[in-house]
Design a protein around this nucleic acid. Structure first.
Length: 221
DNA sequence: TCGTGATCATCC
DNA sequence: GGATGATCACGA
């Protein structure tokens, strides 16, 4: 699938997907539909990337760098409530002195997001889930303030060597949680005495209350 | 191993 | 029932 040349073109393409089941979309690309997502957790997101012409790859960049747009699928229930938190980016755990919010990956990724709601409960087979109306979103001043506050607090704790004491309960809208292949995947971080330690890689996630509110704000308009 | 795409499984 | 901590697959 070619890359959309503009934001309106991207939005149009996304709108044309609304109403389709994931099975219908997958079949149009000749992609097999998994029975469940236990071993294909990224299947929905990758299918939508393909359909919308996002750049594949694992670079810490937006999905459409030339458009300044990040693509996120978000599973919602029948009432429009997110079923999961939303992964944003991996958290830097070393060499973070002087890192500012303005230059952070979190802010960069969230500066403009194309949300694609995917309707369905966990009990619903992936192929039966329905693509919803897309939403092109940028944080309001208030939303950005909340994000910034949480990010700065969490990064402060990391820089203090407290990474192992940060739980997902920190932060109002943004949280830090493990982001790893398994419990043996370790990465370098800084301990309480400033010494190097090995710990689970962490990622920033948007809490469901935050994404629920931004979706609700949109769909009530 | 890291960063991408995330959801699973269990606890509270 | 919802959130936390753990985990799955893949490409580079």
């Amino acid at each position: 699938m070619s890359r959309p040349a503009s934001i309106p073109a991207l939005l149009l393409r996304a709108e044309q997907l609304a109403g389709l089941s994931l099975r219908e979309l997958a079949q149009s690309f000749d992609i097999p539909v998994p029975t469940d997502l236990r071993r294909d957790k990224g299947w929905v997101g990758q299918l939508l990337e393909l359909a919308l012409g996002a750049s594949a790859g694992s670079k810490p960049e937006q999905d459409f760098p030339e458009l300044g747009v990040e693509l996120k699928s978000i599973p919602i229930d029948g009432r429009g409530k997110p079923l999961e938190t939303t992964f944003v980016s991996v958290a830097p755990l070393t060499d973070i002195g002087g890192l500012r919010w303005e230059d952070s990956n979190v802010r960069n990724k969230l500066s403009r997001v194309l949300w694609i709601p995917v309707l369905g409960e966990r009990s619903l087979a992936p192929g039966d889930r329905i693509i919803g109306q897309p939403l092109l979103w940028s944080p309001s001043e208030q939303e950005e303030q909340l994000l910034r506050q949480d990010w700065e607090e969490i990064m402060e704790l990391i820089s203090l060597g407290e990474v192992q004491n940060i739980s997902a309960r920190h932060g109002q809208v943004l949280q830090l949680r493990p982001k790893a292949a398994n419990g043996r995947a370790l990465t370098e971080a800084v301990g309480r005495q400033g010494q190097p330690i090995m710990t689970l890689p962490r990622g920033f996630y948007l809490k469901t209350g935050f994404t629920a509110a931004l979706l609700a704000r949109h769909f009530m308009l």
